[in-house]
């Protein structure tokens, strides 16, 4: 289904800036880049509702990099906060106290800690109530703000503060990354999408599309984290690209439960090309290569794409399992 879009190339990215320079996120942070691009599509009238995470520090009194509004909530309750803002706007407009031109888009912004773990139930509640809002999770796959402890989003094989590789458990995290996209889809959220900053046009189009849908619009952005993942900030976009090209981060959307992959790699790059570029996976290669663990990761990626391809009718050449 092709819908009209104003985004065909990166040059179409709106030039209006709603994020001023001088924020306090780490140099090269994918999370703040996601907020910047997201905001460009939404335009000026936005209220951000934040749950504790790295982004909380980006807006630290008395300085804010946002030209729009910003509300903190407790870790667990950003969607509840968003409900309050949405209701207040609706009531004021219904009473004629706020002109419709001053209506705002309400956007929850959280890290994966709040999205996958601590704020999970309040997001579920908001989906259940069909709250008309955007939900943006910048997913850096751990609790980055407090020193990179494992979350339900941390991938298999990743080291973290709480899953260090040890003699007894040399591979780090043994859990698989939770599939939040599917969880939200199962709750009948009308729009769920994954994003990668590295695929800017796909990103812009998905935020644009969300604007045509009433109800909860859920986004998970793959947000490279130089500090937590251990790589040079200059490679943030390259790593995000690699995550897509290896098939580790599928770009897709679900409209009323129907899933479509929006970027389909013809043939997958080996996951090794992605893993070896980050310190959080270094123990899988040094001092001895953890062949078994790497194979597990490669196999799960290959089988993901085989299943997705069979459902949607595309073919992806799997990467060799070594």
């Amino acid at each position: 289904m092709a819908t009209a879009t104003r985004f065909r190339t990166l040059k179409d990215m709106p030039s209006d800036e709603y994020l001023t320079p001088g924020n306090t996120m780490c140099a090269g942070c994918g999370g703040i880049l996601a907020v910047r691009i997201f905001h460009k599509v939404l335009g000026p009238n936005v209220t951000w509702v934040n749950a504790a995470g790295c982004m909380t520090i980006a807006v630290s009194y008395p300085l804010s990099p946002l030209k729009s509004n910003w509300i903190y909530t407790a870790f667990a309750s950003a969607p509840a906060g968003a409900q309050g803002v949405r209701d207040a706007l609706d009531v004021l407009m219904a009473k004629g106290k706020l002109p419709a031109s001053e209506d705002m888009k309400v956007v929850v912004v959280t890290g994966d800690g709040a999205a996958y773990d601590i704020g999970f139930q309040s997001a579920a509640g908001a989906i259940d109530r069909r709250l008309d809002f955007y939900y943006l999770c910048y997913d850096n796959e751990a609790y980055g703000n407090t020193g990179f402890q494992m979350s339900s989003s941390t991938p298999f094989g990743s080291a973290s503060k709480t899953t260090p590789p040890t003699a007894a458990n040399p591979i780090g995290n043994t859990h698989r990354k939770m599939d939040l996209f599917e969880v939200w889809r199962a709750q009948n959220a009308p729009y769920v999408a994954t994003l990668s900053n590295s695929h800017g046009v796909d990103f812009l189009k998905k935020v644009e599309k969300g604007g045509t849908i009433r109800g909860p619009k859920m986004y998970i952005d793959f947000a490279a984290c130089p500090t937590g993942w251990g790589f040079d900030p200059k490679d943030s976009i390259e790593l995000e690209k690699l995550a897509v090209q290896t098939g580790i981060w599928p770009l897709k959307e679900s409209v009323d439960g129907v899933v479509r992959h929006t970027v389909v790699p013809r043939s997958l790059l080996p996951v090794k090309e992605y893993l070896t570029k980050q310190e959080r996976f270094a123990h899988l290669f040094e001092p001895t290569e953890r062949t078994e663990a790497i194979r597990t990761i490669q196999e799960s990626v290959n089988s993901y794409w085989a299943v997705a391809g069979a459902k949607e009718g595309f073919a992806v050449k799997a990467a060799e399992v070594t």
């Binding site: 001023t20 320079p21 996120m25 900030p233 200059k234």
Partner: peptide, 28 residues
């Protein structure tokens, strides 16, 4: 498009400029 800091802007001449007051030097 990819500067996380909004430290780049496009001038009236259509050219990209770097705001060195706030560019963090990530080198993206």
């Amino acid at each position: 498009a990819y500067c996380p800091e909004s430290a780049m802007s496009v001038g009236e001449d259509g050219r990209v400029r770097i705001d060195y007051e706030n560019c963090k030097g990530c080198m993206i």
